[in-house]
């Protein structure tokens, strides 16, 4: 229990004009933990994720990250080059729409190998072997390695995007509604895969979802957001089974159970 968080967010605020889309949010992410951010559309959860992932500048706050080589850096205060390097090597970002996270004109194998090449790996045989291994891990047949992602189904594209992110063994992965656009049966398969990969790779994950079922299955802890602010946080099953705040009670009671 003596270890420190891998990520500490303090007072993060993001305004669009006069409106605060994210308002003074603080959170911690611990090594090996899956943190879920739940809330309805427009609650600011995706904006928060985009600020954390360096995809959008924040207006105030700190994102303190403990790097793989033991430094503490404020991701928001780093130079653009340093931030990009860290994001490419130690972080991953899984988009809701796999097309935003894949290169459509590059083969499946190339999509997986690209981040490795960015880290300096050049040996074609090794890259291809690693790509094939990862395609297998995300349950894509090896004979699809040379196909372009546009020939894949939505579920396959999403699994490819996950392989592309995890191949470099990132320490932090941010996921924005990764099961969002998928059929329920495909979702179940992806959820099972994510659970297994997160455990095996030991990565820390922040996952944004509006689906409390997904949150219950994947997240160790949950944060509830509403109108840009943090409403309630806690252990996943306690937050869902014993919600305290009126808004959390409303959110939990609105779910259809099957």
């Amino acid at each position: 229990m003596s270890e420190t968080p891998i990520l500490e967010v303090r007072g993060l605020t993001k305004r669009f004009g006069a409106r605060a889309a994210v308002r003074d949010v603080s959170l911690e992410l611990w090594p090996g933990e899956v943190l879920g951010i739940v809330g309805e559309s427009g609650s600011g959860k995706t904006t928060l994720l985009n600020c954390l992932g360096g995809r959008m500048p924040a207006d105030a706050g700190e994102v303190l990250y403990h790097t793989g080589d033991g430094r503490e850096v404020d991701m928001l205060a780093l130079s653009e080059a340093d931030r990009r390097r860290l994001l490419r090597t130690e972080w991953g970002f899984v988009h809701q729409n796999p097309r935003d996270g894949l290169r459509p004109d590059v083969s499946a194998g190339g999509n997986v190998g690209e981040r490795l090449m960015a880290l300096g790996q050049r040996h074609y045989g090794n890259l291809r072997d690693t790509a094939l291994d990862w395609l297998k891990q995300v349950e894509i047949d090896a004979d699809r390695v040379d196909d372009k992602p546009r020939a894949f189904s939505g579920g396959m594209q999403q699994r490819l995007q996950i392989a592309r992110n995890l191949v470099t063994h990132p320490r932090v992965v941010l996921m924005d509604e990764p099961t969002g656009g998928l059929d329920v049966s495909v979702q179940a398969r992806l959820l099972d895969l994510l659970r297994r990969l997160v455990r095996d790779v030991g990565v820390s994950v922040i996952i944004v979802t509006h689906d409390l079922g997904v949150a219950r299955l994947l997240a160790d802890r949950l944060i509830v957001m509403r109108e840009g602010g943090l409403v309630e946080s806690g252990l996943t099953d306690r937050l869902l089974d014993d919600p305290r705040e009126p808004y959390t009670q409303l959110l939990v009671s609105s779910v259809l159970t099957v």
């Binding site: 229990m1 179940a188 398969r189």
Partner: peptide, 26 residues
Amino acid sequence: SPRQVTALRRDTIGYVSQFLRVIPRV
């Protein structure tokens, strides 16, 4: 803390609830 609870559940406290919460596909 949530992390302490998680550690207690991993190492110390086992709970047989009335209903199995099924994980799809596992």
